[in-house]
Structure formats: structure tokens, C-alpha cells
Amino acid sequence: MDLSALRVEEVQNVINAMQKILECPICLELIKEPVSTKCDHIFCKFCMLKLLNQKKGPSQCPLCKNDITKRSLQESTRFSQLVEELLKIICAFQLDTGLEYANSYNFAKKENNSPEHLKDEVSIIQSMGYRNRAKRLLQSEPENPSLQETSLSVQLSNLGTVRTLRTKQRIQPQKTSVYIELGSDSSEDTVNKATYCSVGDQELLQITPQGTRDEISLDSAKKAACEFSETDVTNTEHHQPSNNDLNTTEKRAAERHPEKYQGSSVSNLHVEPCGTNTHASSLQHENSSLLLTKDRMNVEKAEFCNKSKQPGLARSQHNRWAGSKETCNDRRTPSTEKKVDLNADPLCERKEWNKQKLPCSENPRDTEDVPWITLNSSIQKVNEWFSRSDELLGSDDSHDGESESNAKVADVLDVLNEVDEYSGSSEKIDLLASDPHEALICKSERVHSKSVESNIEDKIFGKTYRKKASLPNLSHVTENLIIGAFVTEPQIIQERPLTNKLKRKRRPTSGL
């Protein structure tokens, strides 16, 4: 017993010596996670971090007073192994002897410093981030199933929210409404489509400006004509009531908005009720001829604005009016007729031209339509002016008669200019590109209106002035400009410049 007691005391002394060697000089306990400095002193990692955080910048070693920084600290694995072995020896000594260790306080702390507990403390002390800490805590505590279930439920809930957000973003663009038309193969669909197009076009005519009305009406008319041609002859009974509906809707729209509806009346003529396609083609032919005449008058307007600064050229074209007008009339009417003589009366030419125009518009179905009313009214106005011209010709002399006839021709041009508003800008460009020769010939008609105004002003003063002067240069210039014009009389060319000069002198006297 005595020997055993001596041996136990010796073992205890050895353990105490080893414990003092492996103590931390700051906390005076076994080193936890030993860290060595540049001066080869060993301290606990937790104690050194606490010391360095007390001051900004480098701190001093507690043993040798040298500078220490966080970067200079290094882990010493050898001392950590020695500490672990010492703890194992102490545990074995207690089991063999059955005696508690003399320094129970220190031993209890040593026992608490088992490797499992050290790992837990290291995970908390090290600044490795929240995710690494959570992982280490889960690994160190596998015995708690409640914690695992809560963490898994949190992760699953987070994943569910992310997935639901993604699915919502994908589903939202798919919620856009999609309209699908289910059509049938019955023959009544074509008639319904035609009526739908006509009503939609009328609404567009009321909303859209004048520049786009003609294009819309032309497209709708083409669509309706194609649909009529596709149907068989057996379905004509269905077409006639639908066309009557079209007429009623167009008349109502014309009564409500007459000014807006006139812009599309000329282009919509071939959508009118037709028994066969031949009647629609004839109407299209007549409309094309009318559009040609209207576009020519538009060309004359532009030329008149350009040549208004040259009064000499405008005056020299006075007698070329009849010849150029004959050529335009021959090209406007498709019928083959002989040219009228140069010395014939211009009023007779106008009456013949009106007689040619009237039969074209005397179809029984055309008179029933609303768009032809505008053309009939313009023709009636022309006839009224010609009836007035006959009365004026009986009273005035030959020279005054010529000037009045020219004035009436200008009035006719004004009437025809009203129809110019109905034609589109695209048709003007096509006419100029296809028929430049006709445009040059028809330019002379509009330029002549300037000389007509001068004659009217001469009649106000009650006299006409003449001068025997020749202007050969002007006649040559005008002959080169206009290709299809005829030779003019030299006496009238000489008379016109004198009248304008005298007018300039006598205007201030009349004002006084």
C-alpha cells in the first residue's frame, strides 16, 4: 500500500509539471487552440484576439514586449497534440486509482476541453461567416432531431417561395387574352364579311383624315369586289339584299356627314349593287376616265402658280386654248370622233363635250346612286353658264364675245376644280409618270385663266386698248415650251401688254 501511494504521488507531480508547461500565460489554463508568435511564445487563440482587439494597430507580447499583429500569429499543431495527450492521461489516472485529481477545478476545466467541445467553440470564435457556423452547429449536434426538422422546413419554405415567384413570372405573360375566330364554310359568310367591311370603312371615314380616306375606301372596294366574284351565280339572291343594306348604310352616312363622305364616293362606285361583274367593270372604266381629267386639272394648277410671274407667256397662250382643249377632250372620251376645226366657235365645242359626257352618266342604276348626284349638279351648273353665254354673245361685239367665252371657260374650270378634291395624291404621281406629254398640253388651259381676268378688268373701264407692237421672242419661247399647242394670231399678242400698262397708270386715278 505504501509503495502504491508513493507511485501515485509521483504520477500526480509529473502531471502537474506537464500542466504548468502547457498553461497559457494569460488565462493560466491549458492552452486552447495554441497560437505561436514571432517571438516563439505560445498563447491561446481566444486570449490573443481579445488582446489585439483592445487597441488599434499592433499590440505588445505580454512576455517579451514585442509587437504582435493578427497576421504574425501562427497555429502550432504540436502543442495541440500534447494537450490532447495530457487530458487522456489524466482521465486514465482517475480510472485506475479511483481518486480524484488534486486540482479539481483545473481538471474539471480540462475535462470540459474535450475535442468535441473544442470544435464547437472554434466554430463560434472564428469569423467564418453565418453559413459556415450553421453547418458546423448542425454537424456538432446530430442528436437534436427537432433542430434538423426546423432547419429543413425553413430551407424548403425558402425554396418554395423562390419557385413560386419564378412560376408566377412565367405564367403572367401567358394570361394575355387570345381571340380565335371559328369560321364556317357556308355561303352566307361572304355576304356577312362584305357588310362588315362596308360598315367598318364608314366608321374609318368618319375618323380618319382626308388623305387616308381614299386609300381605305379603295382597299375595301377591292375586297368586296373579290368576294362578289368568288361566289357562284346561284347565290345572287343572297347578294341582292346585302347590297341593298350597303346602299342604305352609305346613304345614311352621306346624310350625316356629306363633306366627309364625298371624298370616298368616287372610289367606292364599283361596290354599288350589281347584278353581274360586267356592270362593275364598266363603272370602273368610267371612274378611271374621270380621275384622269381631274388629275390633269391639278397639274394645271401647279403650272399656273409657276407661270404667274410671267405675264407675257400667259398672254401669248390665249389663242392656243381651243387647240389644246380639243386634244384633251379627244383623250378624255374613249369614243372615236373627228377633231373640230380651228376656226369653230369654242362654245360649240363645249356643248358637244357636254353631250358626250351626259350619255356616260345616263345609266338607270347610276342615277339612283348618291355619288353621281355631285356630277349631275356640276353638269347642270355648266349648262347654266353656257345659256348665259349665249345671251352675252348677242349683245357684245366679236372681240368682247371672245373674252366672255374665255371667262366662261374659266368658270367651267372652277367647277371642275371642285372635283379635284376627290382624287388622291398617289394617283397624281402615277398620271405624271405615265403621261407626261398630256400633262404639258393640259398646262396651257390653266395658264389661260390669267388672260381671262385681264379681259374682265378691261370691260370694267369700258374700253380695250391696242398697240401695234411685235414680240417675236415671246412667241418662239412659248412654242418651244408647249409641244401640242397651235400657232397664235400676232394681233392679239400685241394687244395684251398695252392693256396691263394702261391699267397700272389709271388705277390711282380711279381711286381718287
Score class of each variant (00 low, 15 high):
155 Q>W: 11
158 N>R: 05
8 V>E: 12
55 K>W: 10
177 S>R: 08
170 R>N: 14
139 Q>H: 09
44 C>Q: 00
118 L>A: 13
163 R>E: 05
189 D>T: 02
129 G>Q: 14
176 T>K: 01
275 G>D: 01
128 M>C: 09
189 D>M: 14
108 A>H: 04
158 N>Y: 14
74 Q>D: 03
179 Y>M: 14
100 E>Y: 02
146 S>W: 06
3 L>P: 10
140 S>Q: 09
162 V>S: 09
162 V>E: 08
20 K>F: 00
69 T>W: 12
25 P>C: 13
26 I>Y: 12
140 S>A: 08
144 N>V: 05
137 L>W: 09
58 P>A: 06
71 R>E: 15
144 N>G: 08
64 C>F: 00
58 P>W: 15
16 N>A: 06
16 N>V: 05
80 S>A: 07
113 N>W: 02
3 L>Q: 03
55 K>H: 13
126 Q>E: 06
99 L>Q: 14
102 A>C: 12
178 V>R: 15
55 K>G: 12
152 L>R: 10
158 N>I: 02
101 Y>A: 06
79 F>R: 01
77 T>H: 14
175 K>N: 04
115 P>H: 04
125 I>Y: 14
89 I>P: 01
11 V>H: 02
112 N>R: 08
188 E>T: 12
172 Q>P: 03
178 V>H: 03
16 N>E: 14
152 L>P: 06
185 D>N: 03
25 P>L: 01
63 L>R: 14
158 N>D: 03
146 S>C: 01
116 E>Q: 12
169 Q>E: 05
115 P>C: 08
44 C>E: 00
99 L>S: 04
142 P>C: 14
122 V>D: 04
128 M>R: 04
31 I>T: 01
102 A>V: 07
107 F>L: 03
30 L>Q: 13
115 P>S: 06
30 L>P: 07
42 I>M: 15
48 M>L: 15
15 I>P: 00
97 T>D: 01
57 G>E: 13
118 L>E: 07
126 Q>R: 07
145 P>L: 11
73 L>A: 02
91 C>L: 15
5 A>L: 04
77 T>K: 14
31 I>D: 03
111 E>T: 09
276 T>K: 06
50 K>S: 13
166 R>K: 07
186 S>K: 04
107 F>M: 15
184 S>P: 07
95 L>G: 02
42 I>W: 06
3 L>N: 15
124 I>L: 09
165 L>T: 14
155 Q>P: 05
146 S>I: 01
27 C>T: 00
158 N>G: 08
131 R>V: 12
52 L>I: 06
93 F>W: 00
32 K>V: 03
158 N>T: 15
173 P>G: 07
27 C>L: 01
8 V>M: 14
19 Q>D: 15
108 A>C: 10
110 K>G: 07
190 T>R: 12
3 L>H: 15
17 A>R: 11
107 F>Y: 00
141 E>H: 11
58 P>I: 00
170 R>K: 03
167 T>K: 07
103 N>V: 11
102 A>M: 04
178 V>Q: 13
48 M>I: 07
161 T>V: 05
69 T>E: 00
93 F>M: 00
137 L>G: 09
133 R>W: 07
166 R>L: 07
103 N>T: 07
4 S>V: 02
78 R>H: 14
127 S>L: 05
130 Y>F: 12
139 Q>A: 12
33 E>C: 01
97 T>Q: 02
111 E>M: 09
88 K>R: 14
146 S>H: 09
112 N>Y: 14
100 E>N: 02
179 Y>F: 09
191 V>T: 11
115 P>V: 13
84 E>A: 07
176 T>Y: 09
50 K>P: 13
152 L>G: 08
114 S>M: 03
84 E>W: 00
61 C>G: 00
8 V>S: 15
129 G>M: 07
170 R>H: 09
52 L>T: 05
149 E>F: 11
166 R>F: 11
145 P>I: 14
37 T>S: 09
169 Q>M: 02
153 S>C: 03
190 T>K: 10
34 P>H: 15
56 K>E: 13
30 L>K: 02
162 V>Y: 07
165 L>K: 07
39 C>P: 00
168 K>T: 05
94 Q>Y: 05
10 E>V: 06
128 M>K: 05
126 Q>A: 09
156 L>C: 15
16 N>R: 11
107 F>S: 02
99 L>E: 10
108 A>S: 10
115 P>W: 14
186 S>H: 04
138 L>H: 13
112 N>V: 07
190 T>E: 06
